[in-house]
Design a protein around this nucleic acid. Structure first.
Lengths: 191, 191
DNA sequence: CGCGACGTTGATTTGCCTCAACGATTGTGG
DNA sequence: CCACAATCGTTGAGGCAAATCAACGTCGCG
C-alpha cells in the first residue's frame, strides 16, 4: 500500500492511531508521474508538498543564463517541493521533475492546515522534518565553500550511494556546482 | 524588557496569552555576552537555541585547512545555534560567537521539550521559523552556484544593509565564500 | 606609543569554465 | 526492425575568475 512508508516514517516520531492514519489518507492523494514529468514548475505556484513513495526526482533552478542548478534530489522516503512557493502561494523559484517514473503522496495547502488542526501531532512531525532538512542544507553550504570539486564528489558518493547509481552524471555535476566536462575529468584522474 | 521582541515575534504567528508568556519566561533565561565571546563552540555540544534580543553574532565552521566559513549572521530578532548539535546532543560543527556585545534569550533542550508540552502553539511557531530558515538556506545554495562573487556581494548588500554596516569586511568575504583580498578588489572596480 | 586588527595592492598560480568535436547508447517513429 | 535523432559521457585547447603569498598603510585601543 502506498501509505505504508509514510505512516511508518511518521510513527518513528509521533504517535498516530489507525483512525488518524485514515484522516491523513482522506486529506492527501496519491499521484503517479512518468519520467521527465514536471510535478511543479518554476514560475508557477507550487501547490503540493510531495512525499516520495517510489521513484526519484530532482528540484532545480534555472538562472538568467539558462543554466540549471539542482538544489535537491529525492528518493523513497524523502520530501520535495518549492517550500516558499507552497507556503506563500507565489511563483516558484524551482522546478520539481521526475527522473524516474515515481509515486508521490501530495499534501495541498488547505489540507495541510486541516491536518494540523485535526492531528496536532503532525505539527511536531513536520517540525522535525524541517530541522533535518535545514541541517542538511547548512552542511551543503559549508561544504560548497570549504571543499574543492573533487572532494565534494567523493563525499557525495559516500553520502548518497543510492542516488549516485540512479541519476546521470550531468545531474550530479549540476548538484555539485560544476560542469559535466569537469566532473568527467575529476572521475578519470585516479579512481 | 528583554522578552518584548521575542513575544511580539511569537504573537505574529500564534496566540500567546500573558500567563503563557510567563511560562515561556520561566523556562528560558537571558544571557549577556561580550564582543568575541563564544556562545557555543565547534567540537562541544551546543546546549541552547539562542534568540537575539540585541547585538550581532555569527555562526561559522573551521575546516581542515584552518579556514573559517561563516554560515550565518544574526542580529536583533534572529535565531542562532548549531541545530544538529542541539537536537542530537553531539559535538557541534559550528562555533557561535558574538561580533558585538549582545543579549540573548536561551532555550535549553529539556526546557524546549517542556515548552512544547505546555504550550503546543510553540510547536507551530518553531515550525514556521524553520521553514523560513530552510527557504533562506536553499536560496543561498542556488545563489552560491549561479552567481559570481560580484553579484553575490551586491545582493548581500541589498538584502542585509543592516548587517553590512555592523560587521568587518573579512567576515562578509567569509560569508560570501571568497577571500578578503578578492572582496577588496570587487569593491574598488566601480562602486 | 606600540601592537594587533583590518583593509588594500601587486604578482603569480590554479581550479574550473567555455567551446567544439566525437563515440557510444538509448529510444522512437516509419 | 531498422534508421536516425537525442541523450549522455568524454577529450582537447584556450581563457578567466578567484586563490595564494607577500608586503604595506591605517586606525583604534590597551
Amino acid at each position: 500500500m502506498s501509505y505504508d512508508l509514510l505512516i511508518r516514517q511518521i510513527r518513528r516520531h509521533v504517535a498516530l492511531s489507525d483512525p488518524d492514519a485514515d484522516i491523513l489518507r482522506s486529506l492527501t492523494r496519491v499521484k503517479k508521474v512518468r519520467k521527465r514529468q514536471f510535478v511543479s514548475e518554476q514560475g508557477e505556484i507550487c501547490r503540493y508538498e510531495n512525499f516520495v513513495v517510489e521513484g526519484c526526482l530532482r528540484c532545480y533552478h534555472i538562472d538568467g543564463k539558462n543554466a540549471e542548478h539542482i538544489v535537491q534530489f529525492a528518493v523513497e522516503g524523502w520530501w520535495i517541493s518549492d517550500l516558499r512557493s507552497f507556503m506563500t502561494e507565489s511563483p516558484a523559484d524551482f522546478t520539481v521533475e521526475a527522473i524516474e517514473p515515481s509515486t508521490l503522496i501530495q499534501f495541498g495547502r488547505k489540507e495541510v492546515e486541516e491536518l494540523y488542526r485535526r492531528l496536532p501531532a503532525l505539527e511536531r512531525f513536520f517540525r522535525v522534518m524541517l530541522q533535518n532538512a535545514l541541517v542538511a542544507s547548512q552542511r551543503r553550504i559549508v561544504d560548497s565553500y570549504s571543499e574543492d570539486a573533487k572532494r565534494r564528489y567523493a563525499e557525495f558518493r559516500e553520502r548518497h550511494p543510492d542516488i549516485e547509481k540512479r541519476v546521470p552524471l550531468y545531474m550530479i555535476a549540476s548538484y555539485l556546482g560544476i560542469t559535466p566536462e569537469f566532473l568527467s575529468r575529476i572521475r578519470q584522474d585516479h579512481n
